[in-house]
Design a binder for these strands. Structure first.
Lengths: 248, 248
DNA sequence: TCAGGCAATTTTGAATGCAATTTTGACGCG
DNA sequence: CGCGTCAAAATTGCATTCAAAATTGCCTGA
């Protein structure tokens, strides 16, 4: 093959950093046009995550194009991205299908979530500020209140918020993005850890959260990482038990 | 907007599992045609990872199309995927650029790698077989041999192999894929942890590997996770020091 | 009645075309 | 000589088109 005609292309020197001297119009036009592609991608992802397409079902290109009012090109681009995210699978010449998540894969995903939360906890111990901690502590107590009142909805909201805050406190963009990605994949399966029917697990979860807060207070990174991983493990196990309980 | 004309689409019942009754042609034509898209995606990824495009440089659509002998459509699809992988960034109406990885992001990526390795270690302790362990032990001793002989290349190869085996032993597909993704992103920056110039770090790394093997032997999950995370941290720190040393 | 085969239709994968935006470069002015 | 303006050229985003593959439906023959 011919020589690398464009082998080492040099940077054009344009820096991603703001260069105010270059911008005559002071208007910071960032994302003025959110680009159809991104919008379609987000919409299609939501469409699937929200369960509008059954697991294993074909993803009907034509229909979705009409639905979103676009041509096939941007839709197909979005499909490739969703496939790389693991939400759908592309069968050569046979279209896209919503990926079916079997029990084994669910366990795998939960474990990775656990690993990411463990990492978040470890990093959070290094970087969390007093304000961050105070906010998490506040959420923790609010959650405890919901627990006492048996307010499942409020409890879940606080629980979610706490875990999100920990990830946030880790101050790691790559971690945040990866965490969000896995959370999205898991959101599709409703692992209804319906604690209402499992008071024991609820109490256990609450105790684990006490440990989490305590480890974070002491900035005990490795310890917090361990607790968080096991916390997710228990959560998954409870969900699995509940699943089995329903199906029997 | 109108009613969800295609709201709950049902599965077509076709199972991903082999359905021999449905397949008249017994030929298992899986991936006979690797689909241009996948090929282009892999080639483009390699092209960028191997440093043919400088960080921050524009990704010239037209030129790459000619280079790969394809039209813009599959190339653009690949670009979207690479953008979702974080390898490039897409600026609306202004094309794709190779993402510039600054010091901060490098630290973030290393930490996530550390978190993933920690998870791999923890899971490996749960699932590793005696054969798996024996293989890792063998690699460890081989690595020690390279260390004694100051064979940097052989040392690196074994080192890499050990970490890969641990991830493999974790038996978690999602983890493996995520790990591979981050490894790819990091491969672009040559964090030449040139141990040859840093004998202390090399010795330290070797001692850490002794701990790793020991924890794995005892199936001490939480402990191994902790060691692996710190191992990556130290590796990063050594690379950063070396970087600073070079630039001064 | 039902299995098998063939042709029409549908669907996918990729190329091409076209409007809109950006970039480039020349020109005029201070 | 430097700076702003504006038009030409290039590039991007998306729609449309086209060929190849798969799916569907129909028909035939046992």
């Amino acid at each position: 093959m011919s020589a690398m005609t464009l082998a080492p292309i040099d940077s054009d020197g344009t820096d991603a950093a703001a260069s105010p001297t270059l911008g005559p119009p002071p208007k910071p036009r960032e994302r003025l046009v959110p680009s159809l592609h991104d919008e379609v991608l987000a919409r299609l992802r939501d469409f699937i995550v929200e369960g509008n397409l059954a697991a294993g079902a074909r993803v009907p290109e034509r229909l979705l194009c009409e639905r979103f009012g676009i041509s096939r090109t941007p839709l197909r681009e979005a499909l490739k991205v969703l496939a790389s995210e693991g939400l759908i699978e592309l069968l050569p010449n046979r279209g896209a299908r919503v990926r079916r998540i079997d029990e084994r894969e669910l366990v795998d995903l939960f474990d990775v979530m656990g690993g990411l939360e463990a990492l978040a906890g470890r990093l959070a111990c290094e970087r969390v500020t007093e304000e961050d901690f105070a906010e998490i502590e506040r959420l923790h107590h609010a959650m405890y209140g919901h627990y006492l009142r048996r307010d499942l909805h409020g409890y879940f909201a606080c629980n979610q918020a706490i875990h999100d805050r920990i990830v946030e406190a880790a101050g790691n963009a790559a971690l945040r993005a990866t965490y969000a990605g896995f959370a999205g994949r898991l959101r599709r399966v409703r692992y209804s850890a319906n604690l209402d029917a499992d008071r024991d697990r609820w109490g256990e979860a609450m105790r684990e959260h006490e440990e989490i807060l305590d480890a974070l207070r002491r900035r005990a990174g490795a310890e917090l990482a361990d607790i968080l991983f096991r916390h997710l493990r228990n959560k998954r196990r409870a969900a699995a038990d509940r699943e089995a309980q329903i199906s029997e």
